[in-house]
Structures are given as C-alpha cells and as structure tokens.
C-alpha cells in the first residue's frame, strides 16, 4: 500500500517538529515574523557554515580529514535549536578531522566549546578567563549545563 508507506516516510520526517500543527498555518503577523527572524538569525549563518564544512574534500587538513558528517551537522542544529535564546550569538564552527564538529564561543571573558562527535556524543569545555577555572563535561541528551554556560556569552535581547 504505497500511500501508507509514503505516510510513514513523511510523518517520520515530520515527527520531531510537531509544531506548527496545521498543514496550512496562518501567516504570522509582521511583528511576530520580525521576532521569529531575530530569534533564528543565527541559524542562517550556522546552516551555511555546516553546509560548507559538509562539502570539505577528504584530506582537507593535509592528512585524512573527512568532511563534517551529515549526522554531526544535523545533531549540531538540533542541539543549538534547544539552547539558543534571543541574544545568544551564533557560534564559530570548526571542523574536526574525523567528521566531527566543534561549536565555539570566545567572548565576555569566557571560552565555551562543544565538541559534537555524532548524535548524542557531546563534550563540553568551559573556561572563565578571569579565574582560569575550567570544566570538562560529557553531556547526554540533557543540555541544561550547556545552556547555563551559554548565558555567560549572551547579549541582552
């Protein structure tokens, strides 16, 4: 039954984004649209950068470096979507040789780095420059510590 199979594929693809719930959503009012645009401005830069990094040639680092994997790129976007608040600047995004990716913020007296090896594989590093205090944390699905760290580099919105 082709339609059911099609349904499965499409619904699976839609599954994590259960909003907007209506197939034909009402367009947001201009003021709302402006807020959404500001809120997701970072995503334009991030998506463009991830696409560049996913297109790197094998050996881009002069060794056997691989392009950023689609899995790491997708997970990076999922992670950012769950922690980026209005006023959080877009991260610098650095490729790592094995197809992994690192998100970095260096501002307001803090270094914050999140290494993403693949889905669910994240390592958080933070350092406060004034005190030299450092922290290394393996994160699971719960990103609260990462979100708390990002508050240090966020601008008022």
């Amino acid at each position: 039954m082709g339609s059911a199979a099609l349904l499965y594929r499409e619904r699976q693809a839609d599954a994590p984004a259960l909003t907007p719930i209506w197939p034909r959503p009402v367009l947001p009012a201009p003021a709302t649209a402006a807020i959404i645009e500001r809120q997701f401005q970072w995503s334009v830069q991030v998506v463009a950068r991830l696409l560049d990094l996913a297109s790197l040639p094998v050996g881009w680092d002069g060794h056997r470096g691989r392009p950023v994997s689609p899995q790491s790129a997708t997970y990076a976007l999922d992670v950012l979507a769950a922690v980026m608040r209005p006023g959080t600047p877009a991260p610098s995004i650095v490729p790592l040789s094995g197809g992994a990716v690192q998100l970095e913020w260096h501002r307001k007296g803090w270094d914050i780095e999140l290494e993403i090896g693949g889905p669910g594989e994240t390592h958080l590093y933070t350092r406060e420059l004034r005190t030299g205090d450092e922290e290394h944390v393996e994160l699971g699905a719960d990103l609260d510590r990462f979100a708390t760290a990002l508050e240090h580099v966020r601008d008022p919105f």
Binding site: A17, L50, T74
Partner: peptide
C-alpha cells in the same frame, strides 16, 4: 535518507525543525 532524529533537551522548545534546512 531520513535525517537523524535525536531527542535533545534544553531550555528552548524549538518551533522550527532546523535540520530540515540541510539539503540532505
């Protein structure tokens, strides 16, 4: 291919499914 779908938990509930911006 279906893009990876991994449940994550942060303070923000995304209203847009951003990974679909990546042309897989």
């Amino acid at each position: 291919p279906i893009p990876p779908m991994i449940e994550v938990f942060g303070p923000v509930t995304p209203t847009i499914n951003l990974p679909f911006l990546l042309p897989w």
